[in-house]
Nucleic acid binder design. Structure first.
Lengths: 349, 349
DNA sequence: AACTAGCACTCGCTACTATCGAGTGCTAAC
DNA sequence: GTTAGCACTCGATAGTAGCGAGTGCTAGTT
């Protein structure tokens, strides 16, 4: 389930003692946000060893890069590498807690809507159950075929091309004409365009063959062009962000206050989200911790992503974005559950 | 242009000296975010008076509630009342600066799209030229009439009702059937529904009269119901928020850090925005400063709003949301320009 | 009567100092 | 291998002192 990107070097496996201590530090720090000292570990966990022993283990873990000290004489906090080991070795795949699991299953049981609405609400739900910003990226436009295509005259010289896709998404493009055209011309162009488009993906739409009606041909060509360019400019994959405000609330977890502001700005522009989902080749839930992220803006964040598997292909991606100090167990469980539920809902086979 | 809500009491007009001082304090504080002292006012502005004279004026302004001191022996900062006087008496309506004015006019000159896309981009632009979060509320669904209505079968038992409105907006509702229906039934229901709906607002859609085809009647009734409920649950007015991340960047202007987080959350849920636009009865640009806002959450914010006038009615609202310490001159100019440009674009008569 | 120079006063800010204590690393004993 | 003990580090807190920006007030000037 979890990605293991660490090369199996000398760190491949820690001994049992160190694992226990690392786990304790990570869990305490996630819970309290304060550096964890040896006494807290020895005391609140019943390891059956003294704080001195814990100190030795901690020193070794720091030498090996799993822990770090904000300053001498403070407790330890996990490094990215420490979180990584925790995620890879110390988390069993956990079921989502009943209250949240119920929320998810109840939503998908009752959901009857077009794909874009479902994805939008999915992002809201994932955000609510994780308390982090949630990302949902839909399938590329190429994966849905055109079910209906129609030209609707709005004013004398403005025509709207409306395409209904097999996943329930409706795309539209405005065509502005130099001069008004008659209803009959629009009807003819509409029919020709529908003939050419229905059954194929919207991106593959072609200009219908020429007829003896130049006006209709022109209109159809312009409408086809408008719809084609739509597919391109929409970055081809629809993006939904839920609960971005959580980032602002987590601002204290970031070193600079304006880090949160910059992240919010990036989420608004969706580039980041698409690029995140793009290089997610793995199947199964993937965790990227701090500096493991390729994007510099995310060096203080962690991301938990899972593809939405449909048959062979991938119908989208869901995930969350939060500070490195996040509850990975809950996050992984939530993302996995939601991605699986969404996949099952979209493809009930 | 600006709303004047202050009752004309003894404060109705300040003498020239006090006005000059108040203006200076407001402008300096907006620029520097630091309490303004008498020396700065006497020095950097050439009032031709000494700092002692300014001090006297400041003391009077504080007595009358226009200024306040964060603590003794600090400079003054404006109160809500001080900002109010500034906005009402000390700002000429200013033209938007050329670079930004160009941005706006160039956008509206080139904009050819459906209403919802235009409104969305308008919120982006308004946010960019003001450096604050921007709000755009569209016209109620009732103001547009149905141009086309069509039922499109997606799967055996799922039919999508797609309505194209006169403003280019496309609304859609999913109808899930207990059992599959034939193409012919769908076609018949679609035609009946279109007959009943085209030309009226989507909210007024009625179930078409019964025919001898029970399946088609049932489908048409359910589709009509789905579309009607859409109008209700969409709060009837579409909302677009642009540049919400500015709020996070302005977090230092708010007393508590999490105020910004809460505001972001409220903006995500759109309630707040709609209610803001709702009780905007005035025509012309309206400014609400700090505690003047009815919503408690906005007590540390200011809002600049303007209706989008179309003929007699109001086609929507545009505005911005920022800290009370905002550049009201720029904000008012930007909101006024954008609302007028938008109105002209929507109703070029 | 309005303005201003002067001055005592306030009080946040910074720097310095002392103390406290959580936490550490190390050593020696078990 | 574990642990008790201990010296040590260093952030956090509190108290003190001086600085200086800024004020209010008074007395003198225009």
């Amino acid at each position: 389930m979890n990605e293991r990107t660490q090369p199996s070097g000398p760190d491949a496996d820690l001994d049992a003692r160190k694992e226990q201590v690392l786990r304790a530090v990570v869990e305490e720090f996630i819970a309290s946000a304060e550096p964890v000292g040896s006494q807290k570990v020895a005391g609140s966990r019943d390891l059956g060893v003294s704080s001195a022993t814990v100190r030795n283990a901690m020193a070794a873990l720091e030498r090996d890069g799993f822990l770090t000290q904000p300053h001498t004489s403070a407790g330890r906090i996990p490094t990215d590498k420490g979180y990584r080991y925790f995620v890879d070795h110390l988390t069993r795949v956990e079921a989502l807690g009943p209250p949240h699991a119920d929320t998810v299953s109840r939503f998908f049981a009752g959901a009857e809507a077009a794909l874009d609405e479902i994805l939008h609400e999915t992002s809201q739900i994932l955000s609510r159950i994780t308390d982090h910003a949630a990302l949902v990226v839909g399938p590329a436009a190429a994966s849905a075929t055109v079910m209906s295509l129609q030209l609707v005259p709005l004013h004398a010289d403005v025509v709207l091309a409306v395409a209904v896709l097999s996943n329930g998404v409706v795309e539209k493009g405005v065509v502005k004409l130099a001069s008004g055209v008659g209803e009959e011309v629009v009807r003819r162009a509409s029919a020709a365009l529908a003939d050419a488009a229905i059954g194929s993906p919207l991106g593959d739409i072609t200009t219908p063959p020429a007829t003896d009606d130049d006006d209709a041909d022109d209109l159809a060509a312009r409408a086809a062009e408008a719809l084609r360019s739509l597919v391109i400019e929409h970055a081809s994959e629809p993006v939904f962000v839920g609960g971005a405000s959580h980032l602002a609330a987590e601002a204290q977890d970031f070193s600079a206050v304006d880090t949160a502001a910059r992240l919010l700005e990036l989420l608004e522009q969706q580039f980041l989200v698409v690029s995140l989902a793009r290089n997610l080749l793995d199947r199964g839930t993937t965790v990227r911790i701090g500096a493991e992220n390729e994007q510099v803006e995310l060096r203080e964040c962690s991301v938990v992503l899972a593809p939405v598997q449909m048959g062979q292909g991938v119908a989208g991606t869901v995930g969350i974005l939060g500070p490195t100090r996040m509850d990975y167990r809950r996050a992984i469980a939530a993302v996995a559950t939601v991605s699986e539920s969404l996949a099952r809902h979209l493809d009930p086979s």
